[in-house]
Simulated assay, not measured.
Amino acid sequence: MPTPCDVVVLLSGTGSNLQALIDSTQGGDNPARIRAVISNRADAYGLQRARDAGIEARVLDHKGFEGREAFDTALMALIDEFSPKLVVLAGFMRILSADFVRHYQGRLLNIHPSLLPKYKGLHTHQRALDAGDREHGCSVHFVTEELDGGPLVVQAVVAVELADTAQSLAQRVHGQEHQIYPLAMRWFAEGRLSLGEQGAILDGQPLPASGHLIRP
């Protein structure tokens, strides 16, 4: 059994991606070990998912801090109590400061509901429909100081159907998120995935700009 890779997950909401990450570690051969889940919202259902799985759940309410930098400093101190090798953003609805991103350089992953670099930010499913796109999807990337702009690790493509609404498209994209996020976490935990000067590296080889692409 390889050395466990301790992971801290940050979230603000229901935690469906967290559940997929938890489920992926249940088999026994995955070196990723989720040590803690931290939320900026005490009512986030993801905290209950963590407790149900026997994972430590913590709350750090951003409203109790004077500005983003003060919150991020406290958040870094809380995360570092668990000495994680990897920090995973799973619907953490906060824009992170440059100091935070630099502190976890090369060990901070995020998932975004579009085929980056398309549709950074919010309302990605409706924007894909409005543009008449035939393909949509989701992306796992290393986090850098550019919002939704870090090197791509893996993307999953979803075909856009004529009858799709933003809700139906989102549902299929979420299904793919639950496949590729555990995959990326496992690659990192196994020592196969890292961040190099030119971008993401998998099994010693630079990944293309689009990351590892998974098509239906």
Score class of each variant (00 low, 15 high):
202 L>W: 12
105 Q>P: 07
182 P>Y: 07
83 S>H: 11
183 L>G: 03
58 R>F: 14
26 Q>G: 14
38 I>G: 00
1 M>P: 09
79 I>Y: 10
71 F>K: 02
42 A>C: 07
15 G>T: 07
148 D>I: 08
9 V>H: 05
186 R>V: 14
167 Q>P: 02
179 Q>G: 00
114 S>F: 01
201 I>C: 12
170 A>W: 00
203 D>N: 15
1 M>L: 13
49 R>H: 09
123 H>K: 01
152 L>T: 02
110 N>M: 11
207 L>A: 12
97 S>R: 08
20 A>C: 04
18 L>E: 07
201 I>E: 12
192 R>K: 03
141 H>Y: 07
106 G>Q: 07
53 A>M: 06
162 L>S: 11
123 H>S: 02
53 A>D: 06
114 S>R: 02
14 T>I: 12
216 P>T: 04
67 G>L: 09
107 R>Y: 14
80 D>V: 07
20 A>V: 05
162 L>A: 12
166 A>E: 08
110 N>G: 09
161 E>T: 05
200 A>N: 04
188 F>P: 06
215 R>I: 04
168 S>M: 01
137 G>F: 01
129 L>G: 13
59 V>L: 13
49 R>W: 08
133 D>S: 11
52 D>N: 09
81 E>C: 14
122 L>Q: 02
21 L>P: 15
44 A>T: 07
29 D>P: 02
127 R>E: 09
82 F>M: 05
83 S>N: 14
120 K>I: 13
29 D>C: 04
21 L>A: 15
120 K>T: 13
198 Q>G: 11
109 L>Q: 07
10 L>H: 07
107 R>S: 15
54 G>E: 06
214 I>P: 10
189 A>L: 00
187 W>N: 05
175 G>D: 09
113 P>W: 11
30 N>M: 05
163 A>R: 05
169 L>Y: 05
48 Q>E: 14
109 L>G: 07
167 Q>D: 13
79 I>T: 10
151 P>Y: 02
34 I>W: 11
92 F>D: 11
161 E>V: 03
159 A>G: 12
184 A>D: 03
160 V>Q: 08
24 S>P: 13
148 D>P: 08
170 A>Q: 01
155 Q>W: 00
50 A>N: 03
28 G>Y: 07
200 A>P: 01
125 H>S: 00
85 K>Y: 04
119 Y>I: 03
174 H>D: 01
1 M>T: 13
186 R>E: 15
132 G>S: 13
99 D>M: 14
194 S>I: 00
111 I>A: 09
167 Q>G: 06
191 G>A: 04
58 R>A: 15
143 V>L: 04
177 E>K: 03
104 Y>S: 14
10 L>N: 07
143 V>T: 01
16 S>D: 07
131 A>F: 03
176 Q>G: 05
34 I>V: 13
206 P>R: 11
78 L>E: 05
162 L>F: 03
165 T>E: 08
106 G>I: 04
96 L>P: 06
17 N>D: 14
79 I>E: 12
151 P>G: 02
134 R>A: 14
113 P>T: 10
194 S>K: 02
144 T>V: 00
56 E>A: 15
101 V>G: 04
34 I>Y: 09
3 T>N: 02
74 A>R: 01
8 V>Q: 05
43 D>L: 11
117 P>I: 08
69 E>Y: 05
168 S>H: 01
154 V>N: 06
208 P>N: 09
13 G>L: 05
29 D>T: 08
83 S>A: 15
205 Q>F: 03
